[in-house]
């Protein structure tokens, strides 16, 4: 038992070994030790969603997991999801619809939205609003974000069934 913990994990498909301060939360680990600055710190108490990332196939708040807990984990951040092209349709739609302004919420928003589209190919506007209800955006009125997720869903899964 120690204040410092050895972890081995994969981040964006690359193996990582690190020794981390036990108190270091996952998003600080990614940002400070791995220079993956695409995940953002917005509140550090689990409300804003700016640090939303994917761990072991599920979306989590990066500020509500400790790096020490990630031994053996598979972590994907905006950087990796961009490189694999997995969320390209969403990114394309966010740009086309101007679903971002300052961009600080955007990586977390994209990771959360990608999970929705993985589960539900054609969510309604209301469903998109509810799903993203834990991701704070101060710049847009959310409307364009909902538009963009709808557009990405259509691009990925075809026109809605009438």
């Amino acid at each position: 038992m120690d204040r410092f913990v050895a972890i081995r994990l994969t981040v964006n498909g690359e193996p990582v070994e690190a020794r981390v301060d036990a108190r270091l939360h996952l998003v600080d680990f990614l940002r400070e030790q791995l220079d993956l600055t695409g995940s953002h710190v917005g509140c550090e108490h689990g409300v804003c969603g700016a640090c939303t990332i994917r761990v072991n196939g599920e979306i989590v708040r990066g500020c509500l997991m400790l790096a020490a807990q990630c031994d053996g984990a598979e972590v994907w951040t905006i950087e990796g999801l961009t490189e694999t092209g997995e969320i390209a349709a969403l990114q394309e739609a966010f740009v086309a619809r101007n679903a971002l302004q300052c961009g600080f919420c955007t990586p977390g928003m994209l990771v959360a939205a990608a999970e929705l589209l993985r589960r539900e190919p054609r969510p309604s506007r209301e469903r998109i609003r509810d799903w993203l209800g834990g991701n704070y955006c101060r710049c847009t009125g959310y409307h364009a974000i909902v538009d963009a997720v709808e557009q990405a869903a259509a691009a990925l899964h075809g026109a809605p069934a009438e």
Partner: peptide, 11 residues
């Protein structure tokens, strides 16, 4: 915007 959706902002 393309930079920002890719997590390549520089805050």
């Amino acid at each position: 915007a393309r930079r920002l959706v890719a997590g390549r902002g520089a805050y």
